[in-house]
């Protein structure tokens, strides 16, 4: 399913409810137009960052609670686009994963274009028990591997979640690190190891 199809669904939904539209104009469209007029490119952050893909458009349109059917279609679409490693090995180096989890760098207009993108994990999640400075926007991942087991299935689940959290939960707050190309295959493997490797401090 492509983006145009979803945008058509959005347009058709609005066409189906013309009376509602007449009473309450879609303010989000007006706000989007305002932003397009007011923002300027800076550094690596071009105006194309304001182009919404289907997931963003649908989550915005339905205040993060889209209808079940639409949500299912889009989630399947996102799931199908996940690229799992060709060699089938999903478990990298947890030490590299820990370093990556600490970094929140990358993709802001003040980061130079070559800046290595961080995993941003500690911004929102608890991971290694030694790191007390963790955020609470996402669930705690302390002992995740110990509780869920380091199985092939769990590895695939965690890899997919980091690659594209929207595949399982369309309007999740979590970025789609693999889908948007912020993190590469090796980096995601290292993060999988941080979360699942029995040797990782997360599971000690």
């Amino acid at each position: 399913m492509n983006r145009n199809f979803v945008l058509c669904i959005l347009a058709c939904t609005s066409l189906l409810a013309p009376s509602v539209q007449a009473e309450a104009p879609d303010l989000s469209q007006e706000a989007m137009a305002m932003i397009r007029r007011d923002f300027q490119p800076r550094g690596s952050a071009g105006l194309n960052r304001l182009d919404q893909d289907a997931v963003q458009a649908v989550c915005n349109r339905f205040a993060n609670k889209p209808p079940q059917q639409l949500m299912g279609l889009l989630q399947a679409d996102q799931q199908a686009a996940i690229k799992f490693p060709a060699d089938g090995n999903l478990l990298g180096d947890w030490k590299a994963g820990e370093a990556l989890a600490q970094s929140g760098r990358g993709l802001t207009w003040s980061d130079s274009p070559g800046t290595a993108v961080g995993g941003n994990c500690y911004n929102c999640h608890q991971l290694s028990p030694a790191e007390l400075s963790f955020g609470t926007l996402g669930p705690s991942l302390l002992k995740f591997g110990k509780l869920r087991g380091n199985t092939a299935e769990t590895q695939r689940y965690v890899y997919g979640k980091i690659y594209n959290a929207k595949a399982a939960n369309l309007c999740s707050n979590m970025p789609r690190f693999g889908h948007v190309g912020a993190l590469g295959e090796k980096q995601i493997k290292d993060l999988v190891a941080l979360i699942l490797d029995p040797e990782s401090p997360v599971n000690k």
Binding site: S28, E30, L50, Q52, Q56, C59, K166, P175, V180
Partner: peptide, 14 residues
């Protein structure tokens, strides 16, 4: 408008 912009998801990280 402020309320709308507050909720508007976009950019690399949604």
């Amino acid at each position: 408008m402020g309320k709308q912009i507050f909720a508007l998801r976009s950019g690399s990280y949604d």
